[in-house]
Design a protein around this nucleic acid. Sequence first.
DNA 1: AAATCGTGGTA
DNA 2: TTACCAAGATT
Length: 376
Amino acid sequence: MPTIDPTAFSAALLAWYDVHHRDLPWRVSPRQRAAGVRADPYRIWLSEIMLQQTTVAAVKAYYAKFLARWPSVADLAAAPEGAVLAEWAGLGYYARARNLHACAKAVEGEHGGRFPETAAALKALPGIGDYTSAAIAAIAFDEPAAVVDGNVERVVTRLQAIDAPLPGAKPLIRNEVAALTPRERPGDFAQAMMDLGATICTPTRPACAICPVRPFCTATKTAEAERYPVKAKKAAVPARRGAAFVAVRGDGAVFLRKRPGSGMLGGMSEPPTTAWSARADGALGEAAAPFAAEWRLVGEIEHTFTHFKLTLDVWHAAVTGDPAIDGWWSGPENITAEALPTVMRKVLKAASIGTAGTDRRAAEPQTKGKRLHGTG
DNA sequence: AAATCGTGGTA
DNA sequence: TTACCAAGATT
């Protein structure tokens, strides 16, 4: 494997970054940085947690909402977990939101309200692992930590034509990044590597012709950049099936409950659902309902998670009394603020529970989910 | 240490 | 439609 001159490499990369960096809400631009503006650790941390396995486009609106509602780590630490989960609803990987809140409380309770300033200390906090600890340390505290995300893995495996498949090649990649990371401007270097991966060294059809570090790249010499990184193929996702029961009161309120605090959609809200059987053929009738009511099958929804595809039969009932299980009634004016993950919003939509306005019976054509015509 | 954990966009 | 991907962490 050829050795890259770190000084020449980072000079080329940073010169490109100074001109072509992305403008992002949580970012301090190189111009601002040179003028002495420091990144706010809270904002860097918040954005990094949100950006884990999540696109910049999806994060922007959530970042703005969180920052407006909780401008400081103290504000976030003082919030109820349920409020954080509700604000996170729709962004996915909900353990991130639980850990976000736990981390804010740890910073307040154990670190005097200030984020620790080294990657090693940051990594001890909830939700902060190898990547995030290095990123915060580099961007907010100028520590020359090796920042390795998916972008960097792609860039480095191409630079060095690393044929070893991921994730086994991670230690090798990390060492390469550590060797390349400069003492000066380590935060800009990390962000430059990620911007390069996001805009030039893309997964498909990389723009090698305009790449600022092309002279250092082995893979592009043989036009093989697109072959990297090498990854093992993923297994096909199995199918599961279950049922959801949407009870509606006369005033339009829907009965919701809180899911267990850990595991799938941990801590999030839902209309009561059955367990999700590994068998895709599980014919679940109203006998599976959590409480007796005049249940009527009104539709079904499909939702694909990371490791399985779920089909839920959607049952609906008009209810007068209170169910004998834990939960609460959520009125039409409150439903959008509930901690409902996307799959559960699909369920409510299939049961004609609107998320806008109060007329849940509005004749809105069903664009998603199969509308069934039961015995009416 | 392989499995678990969401969602939306795109080829 | 299917498959893969996007600033990974936890157990």
